[in-house]
Computed example of a mutant assay.
Amino acid sequence: MTTITLVRGDITDQSVDAIVNAANSSLLGGGGVDGAIHRRGGPEILEDCRRLRASHYGKGLPTGRAVATTAGALDARWVIHTVGPVFAEEEDRSELLASCYRESLRVADELDARTVAFPAVSAGIYGWPMDDAARIAVETVSAARTSVEEVRFVLFDEQAYDAFTRQVRSR
């Protein structure tokens, strides 16, 4: 059974097997969590991402999918990049968001990762309402068949931490 842990802080400070990056489809870095992971992890992550773009992901990583690279200077073995959906009131994209968590755990299993740190995927610049993002994340991870022993949700601010705490307590 997977243990869910909540941490308020910076995901780049986590000591885990794999850190999940809320990436953009280019895999070449960006703002928010993506930028922080690339800055702290160093150029090795970007080099791996460029290799992926040159081979399997010439058009970028599709939304809801996940792929792993080195973690560079981070205190982890891998970074699992996943592309969350942009929130849209007129279209239910919740299955794509759930897919980010399932696909990241699938990749973690392929890597034999036992501890994985997730951010609140799509809940930043992509505009997903935090309470709903927390619900989807916690429900999906709780239902996943995985060998990952600990999923650590690392939440940057109090609002995110509180939303995830409510979801974990309601289970």
Rank of each mutant, 00 (worst) to 15 (best):
33 V>T: 12
136 I>D: 00
77 R>M: 03
65 R>Y: 09
141 V>G: 05
150 E>G: 00
7 V>A: 03
81 H>M: 04
168 V>F: 09
58 G>C: 07
116 V>S: 03
81 H>P: 13
7 V>C: 00
130 M>Y: 00
160 A>R: 00
36 A>G: 04
131 D>Q: 09
83 V>Q: 03
138 V>Q: 05
161 Y>E: 07
161 Y>Q: 05
131 D>G: 03
87 F>S: 06
83 V>M: 04
110 E>D: 15
64 G>S: 10
157 D>H: 05
129 P>D: 04
99 S>N: 13
62 P>V: 03
151 V>N: 01
106 R>M: 08
115 T>F: 10
139 E>D: 15
141 V>M: 07
139 E>R: 15
141 V>C: 07
95 E>W: 12
159 Q>Y: 00
159 Q>K: 13
27 L>Q: 05
14 Q>P: 05
31 G>F: 11
23 A>M: 09
22 A>L: 07
83 V>C: 09
138 V>M: 06
73 A>T: 07
124 G>K: 10
149 E>H: 11
97 L>A: 02
148 V>M: 11
40 R>D: 11
42 G>D: 00
139 E>Q: 15
97 L>K: 09
158 E>Y: 01
59 K>S: 15
104 S>T: 04
23 A>T: 07
129 P>G: 03
83 V>K: 01
141 V>W: 09
22 A>Q: 05
153 F>V: 01
100 C>M: 06
108 A>L: 06
63 T>R: 02
78 W>M: 02
30 G>D: 11
51 R>N: 14
29 G>R: 04
45 I>L: 14
119 P>I: 01
1 M>D: 08
101 Y>L: 05
77 R>E: 13
99 S>I: 02
95 E>G: 09
38 H>P: 00
162 D>R: 15
119 P>G: 02
128 W>S: 01
75 D>Y: 00
15 S>E: 10
164 F>T: 03
76 A>K: 05
33 V>S: 03
160 A>V: 06
152 R>I: 13
140 T>W: 11
30 G>E: 06
59 K>P: 02
143 A>H: 07
57 Y>E: 02
83 V>I: 08
103 E>I: 04
37 I>P: 04
96 L>F: 13
8 R>W: 00
125 I>K: 11
130 M>E: 10
130 M>K: 15
155 L>E: 01
143 A>D: 14
112 D>Q: 15
